[in-house]
Each structure stands twice: as C-alpha cells, then as structure tokens.
Design a protein around this nucleic acid. Structure first.
Length: 554
RNA sequence: GCGCCCGUAGCUCAGCGGAUAGAGCAUCUGCCUUCUAAGCAGCUGGCCGCAGGUUCGAAUCCUGCCGGGCGCGCCA
C-alpha cells in the first residue's frame, strides 16, 4: 500500500461518513494528505483530514475523526487507526502491506518514481544561455546543474520537455568580443569595455593559426574574421564544458536566426497590432506599464537598431509558435529586473503570463577555500568558471553541491568540504549507501543467493525495515512535488534522508541481509534482498535525476 | 526611493497551515569475533529577525518595521 493508496482510502472513508450523515460531498477536498509523522508513536502515517473538515461538517474534529476511523479500520491492510490530540488520525499498516512497496520498486525499476502528474504539458525549459564571449561562469553552472535536473524531474513527472540554450550571437557584446580578440592577436592592450583573460589570447592565437593572413587585413575585415571564428570556437568550448558536466540541450537556438528571419520586426508589428506600441523621442516603445512593469521599454532605438528586449519578444513569440504551452526561463539574480518586463511582454501578446511564462531566479554562487572566497580563474581572470569548479571537485560533487540547495538561497561552495571523500560530504554519504548495497548484492551472488521470483513481505517486520519501506514509498511524491515546485534540491535532501535510513538499517545489530557464513539462507534473507535491491534502485534513480553517478564500488 | 530574494542551533542549511521545529558539520563519548567503520549509537545546542493580523492550529499565509544580498539604461 503506497501513501497515495492510503490517501485514497482515507478520502473514501470520509466520503462514506459524509454520505451517512447527509452532508455535501462537495465539501471534501480532491485529495486527503497523509504524512509521515516524525514521532513514531504517531503511527506510520497520519492524516489531518478530520481537523480540516470538522467545521464544514458541523461537528468537532474528534467526533469526525472517530467516524472516519471506524470506516478506515475496515480496509484490509490497515492494522490500526488511533485518534490523537485534537483529531489526528494515526494510521498503522500491516507489515505485509507495507512490504509490498519493495516489490513495486523492484518491478518498476528505473521507472520507479515516475508519474503522470504533469502529462499533457509541453514545456520549453531554457537555462544557461551564456553569451559566447567567455566560458560558462559559476552562475551559469548552477543553472546547468539545476536546470538539467529539473528537466529530468519534469520528464519523470510526465511532462514533455524541450531544453533550450539561447545562443546570443548578435549584438554589441559580440563586437566587444571580436575587438578584444583582434587586440590580443596584435599584442595590444584590452580595449575599453573589452574582455580579458587567458582564454581571449588562446582563441586569438588559434584564429591566427587558422587564418595566417588575418592580421594583414584592414581592421573591419579582420574584426569580422575574429567575430565569426571566435564565436564558433567559444561556443564549441562552452558546449564541450557542458558536455563534460553531463549537460546537453535539445535545441541550441541562435539569436542571429531571429534577426535574419525578420522575426524582431514581425514581433514588433504583432505587438503594435495588439495596441501596446507607441513612438516617442524617435524610438519605438512597448507600453509594458499596462501590465505592471515599472516603466515602458524600448523596442527600436532612435538609431533604428532593435534592442535586446525586442529580440526577447521575438524569441518568446517563436517558442509559443513552436507549440509550447509553458515557457520556463532560468536566470541569475542579477537579471531579476527582467521579470517584470518579460511578464508584461507576454501579456502584451495577449497571453496570461501566469500560465505561459515562468521565470525562475537563482541566487549567486561563490567558491570558498580555506575559509576565503575564490575569485580568480586561470582561464578567465576574475570570473570563476564551470571548468574551475569541475577541476576542483569533480562533476558529481559539483552537480550535487549546486543542486542540493534551494535556488533562492545564495551558496558558498566549500571546495575543501566537497573534495573530501569522507562522511562530511553529503554526496559521498548518499553514493556510499549505493556502493554499500552493491557490495551486499555482490556477496549474495557469490553465495549463490538470489532474491527469487517472489517473497513474503510480512517478513519485513523489523522497525528499521519499516522505516526503510516507508522512505522508499515516499519517493514518487517527492519527485512529483519537486517537479511541480521546480525544486530539485528536494530530491537531494530526500536522498540524504534515505541514505541515512539505509545506513541505520544496515548497522542494526542482528539485522543482516545475508546469512552468516555456515548458516543457511532463509526466506527472511531473501525478503531483505528485495528490500535492499529496492533501496538501491531508489538511490540510483534519485541520483540519476540529479545527474550524479551511482557507483557500484567506492 | 522602488522591486525581487534571504533572515531557523556556534557554522552550512532542510522544513509548499499540523503534534515535542530537523539534518549535516563542529565539540565530546562509545561501537569492527563476518554483508564496505567512507558507517552507526549517544551527548550538547533554538525569543524560527521584531511586532501585529488571519486560523481550531503559523517557522510556513497577510501587513508593517529591522538587518543582509541583488537589481532598477534608447547597455547586453
């Protein structure tokens, strides 16, 4: 019996009570939450349904709880229902019913935790989208870890997801990049507003090697060569860094294509047709203040140039035109000022931004070593990059460290901590649990002990086994909630709790999975193999959602 | 000045209205005569920033203040 099953039974019991008493079923909620009480004395699961409904039902919570409990105890598999405090329902399950979870997990395998909670939704998820003027910095790296994990979560929850990288290859920052490369190739100092760092010299040198005559060209022609070749090289490097990090995108979208297609002007005309465009001071404006923005925004400058914002409008329109009903964009905290204008822009197109556009803001990331901030990068000067982080602590620790905190919270990543291969390091704690289980399974195989076709779930009756089973049963709802709230860190925290529950189970005296040498294997050993395999599957699936490897040996 | 985020144990952080607010780290003490001690058990630690409000019930929701981070261009 899963928590979802139990929730259904609680609701059904309440429904029966309402019918008997002639109360309106419409007063009942769509689902009855059951939760795992911290205090084991409060049962395996608890429901607060009676507390929530008593007033509507015109009675007191304890009376209603008693009536629901009477119905609920008739449900096979429910061992007991107690009424506690003001009207809590404290529910205990039969061991046999609780143990079924192990079978369900093993049967579902890699798909355990998947649901159809979000099926039918077609989501475009854009993240990183770093400019091709430099390596991916730490903020982008956070989104690479969180965004990729979120894509996996949304898919596990049944949504159709397209991940997308907006490749910003037009505009003045590219000019600055090209000028910087040219200057570096000529051995001149970094231009005003230019980019510095070792990578600029490296790329410039590569371009000179490939185009030996480039330095003898006139400035504008030389700069064009550096622009085209530089962007290409830089983007290849970005893609390769992300690939090393385990992140690839379904779509790499070029801003240039929007320009070449005339999509910006088309978007402006569309907005004009909607009646939100006006001209003032020689520029073309979008009246975003109609929809709550602080100030109106320029679409076309007095010079006739399109703004970056106009490209944003065209890009949003393009995504919607490709059939996505929800556009999710992940941005750093330094861009949160865009939220207002982006939402207003969507509204100007006639969309309801509450439904079609979702902008997630992630706070800053800093690296710390020996208690002091790390601000230098060999490759990029004062900007710390994805490569710096991966070089320092590896892909698994980096992804886990970035995904384990709420995106709302600024984080300092302590490189010493995350490098350490000890229990102080959360990612090791979780991965070690997986490796430990794999070791047990290897030993079982050596003993010729297999879990067999079936097992007796009532044999998993030890308190520690019950703890583990309940933790395993929680996983699908953790995944669904994390997807719904766009919060992958919930998966990491869950895994840490699950790993802890497993280690406690494993270290309990007298509770061995395998028989001691010389002793015969029993059905209890076989049942525990099911439990342990189920635990392994959930750890592996959870780590998989975060893009972190689950090693068989450590 | 306006907007967004944060404020929970000594430190780093969980906790989408429920019972006695949790974990890891740090300090200290135990546990390998059999499945990985990279682990477990125990000890210590709290005006959940402050003040009101909503509620049977608030760390959680609302309002105001205080403190910190970030942002408010015809830049990208």
């Amino acid at each position: 019996m899963t928590p979802a099953d139990l929730s259904g039974y609680v609701l059904a019991a309440a429904r029966a009570v309402f019918d008997e008493r002639g109360l309106d079923r419409a007063l009942l909620p769509d689902s009855a939450g059951v939760e795992r009480p911290r205090n084991p004395e409060h049962g395996d699961y608890a429901s607060t349904l009676a507390l929530q409904l008593a007033k509507k039902a015109g009675t007191n919570p304890r009376d209603l709880a008693t009536a629901i409990a009477d119905k609920l105890t008739q449900q096979p598999g429910i061992k007991s229902v107690e009424i506690a405090g003001p009207g809590f329902l404290n529910i205990r399950l039969e061991a046999a019913v609780a143990g079924e979870v192990a079978r369900q997990v093993v049967t579902a395998g890699e798909t355990y935790g998947h649901s159809t909670a979000m099926s039918g939704q077609n989501i475009n998820l854009e993240f990183v989208s770093a400019n091709p003027t430099g390596p991916v910095h730490l903020g982008g790296t956070r989104w690479a870890a969180v965004g990729d994990a979120l894509a996996r979560l949304l898919r596990a929850a049944g949504a159709a997801v397209t991940t997308e990288y907006y490749f910003n290859d037009a505009g003045s920052q590219i000019d600055r990049f090209a000028r910087s490369l040219l200057a570096a190739a000529r051995g001149e100092p970094i231009p005003e507003d230019g980019y510095g760092g070792q990578y600029i010299s490296d790329i410039a040198a590569q371009i000179v090697t490939a185009h030996p005559d480039v330095l003898s060209l006139p400035d504008d022609e030389a700069q064009e060569v550096f622009r085209t070749a530089g962007v290409e090289l830089m983007f290849a490097e970005i893609k390769s860094s992300l690939a090393r990090f385990g992140v690839t995108f379904d779509v790499y979208f070029n801003e240039k294509d929007l320009h070449e297609r005339g999509a910006l002007a088309a978007a402006v005309e569309r907005l004009r047709a909607q009646g939100h465009v006006y001209e003032a001071d020689g520029a073309v404006w979008l009246r975003t203040t109609d929809f709550g923005d602080d100030r109106d925004r320029v679409l076309v400058r007095g010079t006739g140039e399109m703004t970056y914002f106009a490209a944003d409008c065209a890009y949003y329109l393009d995504k919607r035109g490709r059939g996505f009903d929800r556009v999710v964009i992940m941005l750093g905290a330094d861009h949160h000022g865009y939220v207002g204008r982006m939402r207003a822009m969507a509204a100007c197109f006639g969309d309801n931004p509450d439904r079609t556009l979702e902008i997630r803001i992630g706070q800053m990331v800093n690296l710390v070593r020996d208690g002091a901030p790390v601000r230098m990068s060999k490759r990029a000067g004062t900007v710390v990059t994805l490569e710096d982080l991966v070089d320092a602590i590896g892909v698994d620790a980096a992804r886990y460290a970035l995904a384990r905190y709420s995106a709302d919270s600024p984080i300092d990543i302590d490189l010493d901590l995350w490098t350490r291969a000890t229990d102080e390091n959360p990612v090791h704690y979780v991965r070690y649990a997986h490796a430990r289980i794999c070791s047990v399974l290897r030993n079982a195989a050596e003993l010729g002990l297999t879990r067999g076709e079936d097992f007796d779930p009532s044999l998993l009756s030890h308190e520690r086994e019950g703890d583990l089973l309940r933790a395993l049963a929680e996983f699908p709802s953790v995944v669904a909630t994390a997807a719904e709230l766009r919060e992958p860190h919930r998966v990491a925290r869950y895994l840490e709790a699950l790993a802890g529950t497993f280690h406690k189970f494993y270290d309990t005296k007298g509770l061995r999975v395998l028989p001691r040498s010389g002793e015969p294997a029993t059905d209890v050993n076989r049942a525990r193999l099911w439990l342990v395999e189920a635990s392994r599957i959930v750890l592996a699936n959870g780590l998989g959602l975060l893009g972190v490897s689950a090693p068989e040996r450590m």
